[in-house]
């Protein structure tokens, strides 16, 4: 049996899982309901999303969340019967996460 490179992907899955578990519920309430209802002024959001530290945090959260999701979706599809195409499936999932991260970098930088 060859050594596994799963620890690398699993570490990102774990870090992303933790950060999304902590932050997503409140973020979804804010950006999905409070902001559309007009509860947050544009100037507030403008200051927030242009702050260098906040931008860096958003990039970090996006990166870890995308790789968390990619890893989970990859293994779920495998469990649901895509075992024979496990390698291309993994490449596809992580490539999508990488593309998402590059887009996130373009958005915040």
């Amino acid at each position: 049996m060859r050594p596994s490179n799963e620890p690398f992907w699993w570490a990102m899955f774990g870090a992303g899982g933790m950060i999304t578990a902590l932050l997503l519920p409140v973020l979804i309430i804010l950006t999905g309901f409070v902001v559309p209802a007009g509860g947050v002024e544009f100037s507030q959001l403008d200051t927030l999303f242009n702050n260098p530290l906040v931008r860096l945090i958003i990039l970090g959260v996006a990166f870890l969340s995308f790789f968390h999701a990619a890893h989970r979706i990859r293994h779920t599809l495998k469990d649901l019967g895509l075992r024979s195409v496990a390698t291309p499936l993994a490449v596809l999932c992580y490539a999508a996460a990488l593309a998402g991260t590059i887009w996130a970098a373009m958005v915040v930088l």
Binding site: M1, P3, S4, H75
Partner: peptide
């Protein structure tokens, strides 16, 4: 370790 840290060991578990 060689056995349980392989893909067929712990890493297949979801």
């Amino acid at each position: 370790q060689q056995l349980i840290w392989a893909d067929e060991g712990i890493w297949d578990c979801t």
